[in-house]
Each structure stands twice: as C-alpha cells, then as structure tokens.
Amino acid sequence: MAAIVSRLERRSSAPRANADSPLLKWSLLAVASAFLVFFLVLPLAAVFAEAFRRGVEAYFEAFKDPDTAASIRLTLIVAASVVPLNLLFGVAAAWAIAKYEFKGKALLTTFIDLPFAVSPVIAGLVYVLIFSAHGWIPPETQQFLLKPFAVLFGWLAAMPAFGWLDPLAYWFEEPKIIFHTTGIVLATIFVTFPFVARELIPLMQAQGNDEEYAAVTLGASGWQTFRRVTLPNVKWGLFYGVILCNARAMGEFGAVAVVSGKIRGETTTMPLHIEILYNEYLFVAAFAVASLLALLALVTLVLKSVIEWAHSRRHA
C-alpha cells in the first residue's frame, strides 16, 4: 500500500520539471517582490507621505500657487496637442507598415523606434539647434510653417488669464518655438511617437489583410473599410497606445527641459515645476504636484488593466 502511494506521488510531480524545486520558485518570487517594494512601492508611498506631511490643508494650498496652476494647465495643453497628433501618425504609420509592401519598410520601422533609443535630452537639443533664432531653419520659414500652431498654443495658454480674447491678437505676435509651448509640443511629439505605432503594428500584422480585402470586394470604399473593419479590430490596442502616449507626454522631463528654457509660470510643465519647487526646498508643494503625476500614472495603470480585462473577456 505504501509503495503504491509513493509511486502515485512521484508520478504526479514528475511531468513538471520545475515543480520539484519549490525553493527556486519561492526565492524567485521573493526577489521579484523585494525589487518591486524597494523600487516602486516605497518611492510611491514616499511621494504621498511627503505631500501630506503638513496635513491636507497644506497639500491643497500648494495648488493655489499661480505658477503651479500654470504648470498643470500647460501639461494638459501639451498632452491634448500631442496625443491626437501621435494618434494620427501612429495609425498612419502602422497602417502603411502592416498592410503594404514597399521599399524601406524595415528602415521606417527602425526609425519609429528611434525615440526609444535616443536620450530625450538629445532630442531637445536637436530641436533647439533647428528652431532657435539662429537655427537651421530661417526664422521667416519657421514663422510661416508654425504660425497657426503658435497662435493656437499662445491663445490656449493665455486664455485663463485674459479670458476669451481675440485669437487674432496672437497672429501679429512673432511666434516662438523654442522657449515656448510650440517647442515643448514638438519635443514631446518626438519622445512619444513610438507608442501608438508600436502598439498597432504587431496587432495589424497578425490580423493580415484578408478582412480588408473582403470589405473591398463587397464594395466598401477605403474610408468605409477603415472605419468599419480596420478600426474596430484594433481599437483596444489603440486605446492602450493612447494611454501610454498620454502618460509619457505628461511625464516627459528631459526633452522638455531643454526646449522650454524653464520660464517659471510660462514654460514649465509639471515635471519641470516639481524640480524647481524641490530645489527651492518647497518639499510639500513639490511632492503635492508629484503626487498628482503619480496619481495619473496609477489611473493609467488601472485603465490599462481594465482595457486588458475587457479585451480578454471579449475574446474568451
């Protein structure tokens, strides 16, 4: 009897090679958890602890500072400008790469990854080199190309201060790129443009072209095919890419630091503003703003999980 039992035990554990070493499993788990606690949970807790060190009132007091309010507004403007543009670019690039054959496809795919490989500071410096007053592109050409954007951003940035002013007023102002919202948006576009495309390309490639071909043979136009077949098939990937893109657009420091010139209350986004506050020993204020960014990261993570959950449930 005992022999039979021991044989059964052996058989049940035998097929899984790694199951016979619970020690390995638990030590790997312990290492991973310790890593997470020290490098992620602890700092996150510290941010909130520091922010609330002087109480809830002091925490909310920090947001009443006009410069802080301006930095939050600027961050939102930048994200609201960057995300739609990169959404457009990402969809176009992914569509081209996944659905067509052309020369230089591998090169384009590599270029899309470039911002991941290049330090954001370098990206910022390059934009300064190109767009500053003595940059590669003459100021007249810059003005011509970017005037509409400059007007839009100028108007958006000034709007809360002056009310709904006539946007035309900004048309006659000389548009600035470097040390201005336009420059920040450009640098942020560069840093965040892989997110949507990277998310879509493998998805679209895996799905192939057959459904689009089917739509075409049934008489659908290009736009109908895109709107009714391609887009619904990639919508979860698209959401995911947009969320990641948005998180990075709001959190970018390096590239923005270089092109913005850190003009307090004018060209400081939240990450830049946090640094300024911290350097001035305004710890509560610095961590209060930081907690807002951290909160955004948490919301992003929750949204991502919800999307993944909804996606897996649909395909179960």
Binding site: D210, Y213, A215, V216, T217, L218, G219, S221, R228, P232
Partner: peptide, 19 residues
Amino acid sequence: PAGKRGVGFVFQHYALFRH
C-alpha cells in the same frame, strides 16, 4: 476596381469580420 466588378470572393480563411 474589385468593389465595382460584382464579384463574390470567399477567402481561404473566411476573413469574416470578427467584431
């Protein structure tokens, strides 16, 4: 173009619209 030829095409892997 394909859409105006009046063909019915059935694909090897059906290519049904999954959503």
